[in-house]
Design a protein around this nucleic acid. Structure first.
Length: 955
RNA sequence: GCGGGGGUCGCCAAGUCUGGUCAAAGGCGCAGGGCUUAGGACCCUGUCCCGAAGGGGUUCGUGGGUUCAAAUCCCACCCCCCGCACCA
């Protein structure tokens, strides 16, 4: 039989599902509901197989729950909000060749469409249409009537976001704030990681400025280690750099020219008074702010004027750069000549040790510089030495007695307190800067700007955090390991700037020059799905979706009749909106990639907690890994990007689904491999062949215990699959439904002639177990075997259909072991058997055995004693002791099973399966009871018999 | 650095929460056999070491500890992966 035509089968069933509208879900109070969601994907490009993986996981659970009798809602929508689509359009408009080529080649966008991409809305629409097709062909069980996209281009959704933000503001969760960002002076906009040519992962860092005094001016020296101020010996200025004297917020400051520009962007009023070269001040003395010590200003060529303030103070005992630079000057007095500094003065500068570190001496900077062999201040090893000293001192250092009130404190703590204290006294200040170069995509060098009057979601609010933690503790989190991560994220989250000046989105209702940012408009929109069906069916105009209407729908606030009158809407319709929301809410499951833990999924909880009563808080979140391709990360730039639509078109939906589902579980990353595709494709082909052949197989008329065994196993597998799906272990579930069940069938067919009624019953169960995972093939098979209706709607197999039979399971297991042991013996001894004898345990052994099961391990010794008091047992001493020991040590569940079964007539069972054993072992098989008279037992093996473990003799 | 996850028999990977049925599931690879004109697919068997009777020995990152019993619990250490924010 040839491979099934997956493509034709899939089209056929997708068409029938759509025609019968079986995934469209309306409220039905007679059924429990299940509301499953996938975070709507961003429409700046084609979906990839990773989206496929995550969404299929949702789909599998949705399909399973449907079969379990739930009224399941699985909706879908599209995310258009943000700067990315607008940015992409902009790049096309500018004629960015590389970018356009990528769209053409990787995304396969036709030429005539590409031209229209200069309009962001068109681009988003194009990808939405393109990707909808991919999602449909993947066979997701979606209710498409509730579909929408975000931004003001969808006014209904915008109304909803407006309502959300008005509420958040009323409740005090949206506040105005000030915040440093990486800023492009040319674009006049913050520059995120994705928009950079250089410097990804670089963010503003706060430098402490220590204000050294020089006449009426301050030299604000920038540092990450303010605690070292007690060990300062001098100041460094780069003699060749341009510095300025400037009025900064009313004080006179001396900083590098670059620094003055930076300070302007950091909410300082800066007026430049004069510009001069660093060498001008070299040789002067300035006053250190804490103790008023007078310190020399020395030339430091390593000082970078473009970094922070361009002024640095020197702590040679604890900073390798300072130590080396000082040594350079001391050893090369010539360097000083042009500045008119006396070499004696420089020689007199001595390191001041202020931190003690276990394992390091008086001057850690000196020690580490020497051990690393740092040559001079231009040696890259100086950087390494700096980091090393910092690390050791920060974690293990303690402030020495010369540090005033901070003596004895660990460095980490002293640092914090010193900064706070001296800032409060005006001796310290601070500024932001970037630790490395950042270049905007527009090729402009970026700096730090402090944005003010920004709107923030105040996630740092401790009460809000507390309620989120409470919600989290009530939720299910899959996989389990992700819970700690979520908790850490809640603690870590700071205020989030929730508005932007550019890009697509919904204008902030009270300040429409701001647009609600992309992550911030996507937190509670699942509520919108619940009502969007009626909004669309009843064609409710967007302007009627007023805050008052939403208040009624989501909170039950307000007077229905009056509201209806004011809006000119039917009161019944408004009530129906409310009822539909109440029916579906809360969200029962939301599943995404693990990257969304630290933003979207946590935001999702924050906003639900802020906006909805406890009974509407989410029930469960789940996360999974990222799709890799042949072991590599998937990236458009790497050329290994697998668009979902291409995957489905090339390999089919069921194969694609099975491949990704079998690839990983938990937080592990699934791998998309050609090898795996081949395998799964072959597996599914032979699966359908196997099932159809088995369905038609003929054999015996009477069922035996092996039929009971097959059904019992199948029932157990069904339970295992269900358990796994309940906790989103989709791979375990599919492995059981596919490979484990298959294995059972193989054993069954090897073990006996098929009994058609049992086989058919088993196959009907098996197809249903597979239906959530590979629904198209299952529908096809279901139809072929005459199953009723859609398998997608068939009931999940129950235990009544596949009753548990412990005895059959245990006997079959014992039979497998017996066969294995016999083969083992034959292998080790090298005997080619003509005759194989089995001896089953006598009743008194069963009594001892069952007693051991009953009493458990606590009474092993006593039991052995009792057992050995039986005369038959005495001569078998050791063996009985071992048997009792093993039986009593069995795991509880296994002990209970065997206890429940009680004594088993193994001999008659073995006699019934004699033919099978003879076929497998190619020898004559004889079965005896140990205690029968006159048995054939030339080597006296019979007494070795134990329950579930007949003695074996071969010759 | 901080936060999160992880190191299992050639590879991938279950088991760890709830200690005992664990020499440790499953898949791949490899070896042998069957089927086949051949290949593929499929089916059996084996795959830490030793063994002429179902047994024994040594294993789960490293080193300690708890226990009658540890891959599983406790402590310390080493190594690997991911995240660290105005962005989807």
């Amino acid at each position: 039989m040839s491979a099934p035509d997956f493509k034709a089968i899939e089209e056929k069933w997708q068409r029938r599902w759509a025609e019968a509208r079986i995934f469209e879900a309306n409220p039905d109070p007679s059924k429990p509901k299940f509301f499953a969601t996938f975070p709507y994907p961003y429409m700046s490009g084609p979906l990839h197989v990773g989206h496929g993986y995550t969404s299929v996981r949702v789909d599998v659970v949705a399909r399973y729950k449907r079969m379990k009798g739930f009224n399941v809602l699985f909706p879908w929508a599209w995310h258009w909000t943000g700067e990315t689509v607008a940015g992409a359009s902009e790049r096309i408009k500018r004629g960015d060749k590389k970018f356009i080529e990528a769209l053409r080649v990787i995304d396969g966008v036709p030429e005539e469409e590409l031209e229209k991409f200069v309009e962001p809305a068109y681009m988003a629409k194009y990808y939405t249409d393109y990707n909808r097709e991919a999602v449909k062909r993947l066979g997701l069980s979606i209710d498409w009537r509730r579909e929408f996209h975000t931004t003001s281009l969808h006014p209904w959704f915008s109304r909803f976001v407006e309502w959300q933000y008005l509420k958040l503001r009323e409740k005090g969760y949206v506040v105005k704030g000030t915040h440093p960002v990486v800023w492009c002076p040319r674009c006049q906009s913050p520059v995120g990681d994705a928009d950079r040519l250089e410097g990804s992962g670089v963010y503003p860092e706060e430098y402490v400025l220590v204000k050294f005094a020089l006449d009426d001016a301050y030299l604000p020296a920038a540092t990450f280690r303010p605690e070292t101020i007690f060990g300062a010996t001098n100041l460094w200025l780069n003699p060749e750099a341009e510095y300025v004297e400037a009025e900064v917020n009313g004080e006179k400051w001396i900083v590098s020219q670059e620094a003055a520009e930076k300070l302007k962007l950091q909410l300082r009023k800066v007026r430049i008074l004069r510009v001069f070269r660093g060498c001008e001040l070299v040789g002067r003395r300035c006053r250190e702010p804490i103790h008023g010590r007078m310190l020399p200003i020395l030339p430091g060529w390593f000082v970078k004027p473009e970094s922070a303030s361009g002024v640095v103070y020197s702590v040679p005992a604890h900073a390798p750069y300072d130590w080396i630079a000082l040594k350079d000057l001391q050893e090369n007095p010539k360097l000083l000549e042009e500045f008119g500094i006396s070499p004696e003065e420089v020689k007199a500068v001595e390191p001041i040790s202020i931190i003690s570190v276990e394992g390091l001496g008086e001057y850690p900077a000196l020690e580490i510089s020497e051990s690393l062999g740092v040559r001079d201040q231009h040696d890259p090893k100086a950087e390494e030495a700096t980091k090393l000293v910092y690390k050791r001192e920060f974690h293990k250092g303690v402030m020495k007695e010369n540090c005033g009130a901070y003596a004895g404190l660990p460095v980490a703590e002293a640092k914090q307190r010193i900064t706070e204290d001296f800032k409060a006294r005006g001796l310290f200040d601070s500024m932001y800067d970037l630790p490395e170069r950042v270049v905007c995509r527009c090729t402009t060098l970026c700096t730090v700007k402090i944005l003010q009057d920004q709107w923030f979601l105040n996630y740092s609010n401790p009460e809000w955090k507390q309620r989120v933690k409470e919600a989290l503790s009530m939720m299910e989190v899959y996989p389990r390991e992700a819970r700690a991560w979520f908790e850490a994220v809640v603690d870590w989250l700071r205020d989030w700037a929730c508005t932007r000046k550019t890009g697509l989105g919904t204008p902030l209702p009270w300040s429409p020059d701001w647009i609600v940012e992309t992550l911030s408009d996507s937190t509670v929109y699942m509520a919108f799905y619940t009502i969007n069906r009626l909004i669309r069916e009843e064609a409710i105009p967007a302007e009627k979706l007023t805050p008052e209407l939403f208040d009624y729908v989501f909170y039950g606030l307000g007077d229905l009749e009056r509201l209806a009158g004011e809006l000119g809407l039917n009161a019944e319709l408004i009530k129906a909106l409310r009822e539909e929301f109440l029916y579906w809410y809360p969200v029962d499951l939301r599943n995404s990639g693990k990257d969304l833990i630290q933003n979207h999924l946590t935001f999702f909880i924050f906003h639900h907690v802020a906006l909805f009563p406890r009974e509407h808080w989410p029930r469960a979140v789940a996360v999974n890994g990222f799709m890799r391709v042949e072991g590599e990360e998937m990236h458009k730039s790497k050329g290994n990007f697998i668009p979902l639509r291409k995957a489905v078109e090339e390999h089919g939906a069921d194969v694609t689904r099975a491949v990704v589902l079998l690839a990983a579980e938990g937080l592990d990353d699934p791998d998309w491999r050609a090898e795996s595709l081949r395998e799964v494709k072959a597996n599914l082909s032979s699966l359908q062949r196997f099932i159809l052949e088995a369905w038609r197989a003929e054999g015996k008329d009477e069922a035996e215990e092996v039929e009971a065994w097959l059904l019992s196993m199948l029932g157990g597998r069904a339970e295992k699959v269900a358990e796994a799906l309940e906790v989103l272990k989709t791979r375990t579930a599919l492995e059981n439904a596919l490979y484990e069940v298959w294995k059972d069938f193989r054993w069954y067919l090897r073990r006996t002639k098929p009994h058609p009624p049992t086989v058919r019953r088993a196959i009907k169960i098996w197809i249903r177990l597979l239906a959530p995972f590979i629904p198209h093939l299952c529908e096809e098979l279901w139809e072929k075997i005459g199953g009723e209706g859609f398998v997608s709607l068939a009931p999940w197999p129950s235990r009544e259909e596949a009753p548990q039979n412990l005895e059959a399971e245990e006997l079959e297991e014992a039979l497998k072991l017996l066969l294995e042991d016999t083969k083992h013996i034959l292998k080790v001894t090298g005997i080619k058997p003509s005759k194989i004898c089995y001896y089953t345990a006598s009743p008194w052994k069963w009594e001892v055995y069952l007693e051991a099961l009953k009493r458990g391990r606590a009474q092993v010794k006593q039991l052995i004693g009792e057992a050995l008091s039986k005369p038959e047992a005495r001569r078998l001493g050791k063996q009985i002791a071992r048997m009792v020991e093993e039986a009593s040590r069995l795991e509880n569940s296994a002990r209970e099973r065997r206890l429940e079964i009680g004594m088993v007539d193994e001999a008659s069972f073995l006699r019934r399966v004699k033919g099978f054993l003879e076929g497998e072992l190619k020898a004559e098989v004889y079965v005896f009871r140990e205690d029968e008279d006159g048995i054939y037992d030339p080597k006296g093996k019979a007494s070795m018999a134990e329950p579930y473990r007949p003695a074996i003799y071969v010759e």
